[in-house]
Design a binder for these strands. Structure first.
Lengths: 193, 193
DNA sequence: CGCCGAGTTGAACTGAATCAAGAAACGTGG
DNA sequence: CCACGTTTCTTGATTCAGTTCAACTCGGCG
């Protein structure tokens, strides 16, 4: 259950087993069926979630009803609406499970307590967020500079496992292109690489 | 000189004057003339910089020679190539000054020492990065969902001071549109609001 | 068996890019 | 302080990548 989280932590910081045990005590576990919500737009995001099994997606819905994927989260990834979690204001993102999933949850209060009790964890999250910034910035640059085909190719290179696990129209939404365009690109690319 | 940095810190965490004084000791100052580089693509990003005066931009140049702005940084903002700074590998971004500027610099080694000496600063950076993630994610969503005009309007709302300080073609590049398109949008919008 | 969501394909359309040319603003050195 | 080159901005004409709309196919599931 907690092995993945421990691995994520020990990859980034030095920490004792006793402390890890203490970390564990701040989390609760949750199972989510496919299509179940972890968070709905407009609610307050009470938890940051660490995925131990399954795939979730976080997304916003625009005025026209179209989904725009912010992030996929599989095993070993964190997911939440950071803004809502931090401020306690209504979430602008929705998060749901694309497969039956298992999560470790921590509330804002538990997070504060944990960071107070185990200050090392500040460093863990600092590094985690720093890496996250690098990844999102990179995605932003790609979205500004690349063509639809280049985006899809990069997605294939960077997250081959996600491509295999989630429906194609969801990938399209993540890349910011229409399902039709993605379908055409795939047809065109068939055989390449 | 350091007031802005201290403000940025005390806005986020509880910290004593003595500790702030210690923080200060890990930084060096640097002045940059307009058009001077802080970092060139291919070099290693040795510093994270805190801007106390002026405006900088970080950007990549694509195969066609076009600039793509990653970030503007004015007074009170941090700027660096996080990836290069963290890994010590070649930077993929360039950073330069758009006005004569003044910076506080901290090296990777000094950063490590500082975080070791004043663990509270982990929390500062954790919060800083967390806010940063929120902002970049927000920008990403906008770049995926909004039209050129909507993007420009949002830019006006969010960063009116930057719009006034940097050339228009740089704004265009930040928004991921061409200077021509931005010029037309501005013409069309003249008088609106 | 029939329905429904997911994916494919085609044709028409469009927002923004590209290409090209001029006008204005800027700053640098004489 | 003016002249000249450079950079920035504007405007028009054309093109194109990707969207939109609509019809059709396929596979799974009640």
């Amino acid at each position: 259950m907690f092995e993945l989280l421990f691995k994520s932590i020990t990859d980034k910081i030095e920490i004792s087993l006793i402390e890890l045990d203490s970390v564990q005590s701040f989390f609760t576990t949750k199972k989510l069926r496919r299509k179940q919500y972890l968070l709905q737009e407009g609610d307050v995001c009470k938890y940051i979630a660490f995925v131990t099994k399954g795939v979730l997606k976080s997304y916003t819905i625009d005025e026209k009803g179209a989904e725009h994927i912010i992030q996929f989260a599989t095993e070993g990834w964190w997911v939440s609406d950071n803004y809502s979690f931090l401020t306690g204001l209504a979430a602008s993102y929705t998060i749901d499970a694309m497969e039956d999933s298992e999560l470790l949850l921590i509330t804002h209060a538990a997070m504060e307590e944990m960071l107070f009790a185990i200050p090392k964890m500040e460093k863990y999250f600092r590094i985690l967020f720093q890496n996250n910034i690098i990844a999102i910035q990179n995605r932003l640059v790609c979205s500004l500079t690349q063509t639809a085909e280049e985006k899809y190719k990069k997605m294939n290179d960077d997250y081959p496992n996600i491509i295999q696990r989630v429906p194609q129209h969801t990938i399209a939404s993540f890349l910011g292109i229409t399902p039709e365009t993605l379908s055409r690109i795939r047809k065109q690319r068939a055989g390449k690489d």
